[in-house]
Computed example of a mutant assay.
Amino acid sequence: MRLAVVLIVLLVAGCGTEVASRGGPPPATPVPTGKATGGPIPTPPPKVCPASGAQVTVGPVEAALGHRAVVLTVTNCRPKTLTLNGYPDVAVLDYWRKPLGTVVAHESSYMAIDPGPKRVRLSKGQTARAVVAWSNTVADGADPQTGQFLRVAARTGEVQAVWPVVTDLGTTGKLEVTAWARELKN
Rank of each mutant, 00 (worst) to 15 (best):
V162D: 14
K47E: 02
T167K: 07
E183I: 10
W96C: 00
T127S: 12
A133E: 00
P44Q: 11
P88S: 07
V120Q: 01
S109M: 12
A4T: 12
K98F: 08
P44S: 07
W134N: 08
P50V: 05
T73S: 13
D168A: 14
C49F: 01
G34K: 09
G53F: 09
F149G: 08
G38D: 08
T137G: 00
E183K: 15
T81A: 14
T178L: 07
L93H: 13
G23Q: 10
V165N: 10
V138I: 11
V74M: 06
P60C: 02
V162W: 11
D140I: 01
Q160M: 13
G173S: 10
K98P: 00
M111Q: 10
T83L: 06
L122T: 07
T172A: 10
A51K: 07
Q148I: 02
P27F: 08
R78P: 03
Q145F: 08
P115S: 09
P144A: 00
A36D: 05
K185D: 09
A51Y: 04
R68Q: 09
L11A: 06
L150R: 08
G24N: 06
A91Y: 03
D140S: 11
T57I: 07
A69W: 07
N136I: 00
T127Y: 07
G34S: 07
M111P: 11
L3E: 15
L11T: 03
V31K: 11
V166H: 12
G101H: 07
I41S: 10
T102C: 11
F149A: 02
P164C: 01
P26C: 03
S123R: 15
Q148F: 04
S21I: 12
V12N: 08
V12Q: 08
M111R: 15
A181N: 01
L82N: 09
T83A: 14
V9S: 06
P46T: 05
L175I: 04
V74A: 09
M1P: 07
D89A: 15
A36H: 01
V162P: 11
V5P: 05
A153W: 03
Q160G: 12
L72R: 04
A128Y: 04
V31M: 12
K124L: 09
A64V: 05
V12G: 04
V19A: 11
M1H: 14
A69S: 14
T171F: 08
G170I: 03
S109G: 14
N136S: 14
P117M: 12
G66M: 02
V19I: 15
V166C: 02
T43R: 15
P117W: 12
T102Q: 10
A4V: 14
T43D: 12
G125N: 15
G125S: 15
V48R: 08
W180V: 03
P50D: 10
G173F: 07
W163Q: 04
S135W: 01
D168V: 03
A133C: 05
R129W: 05
T57R: 11
S108L: 09
V159M: 09
V104I: 12
L11F: 04
P60G: 01
S109W: 14
A54M: 04
C77Y: 06
A154W: 01
G34I: 03
V138P: 00
V177S: 09
G141R: 01
G86P: 13
P25M: 09
L7E: 06
L100E: 00
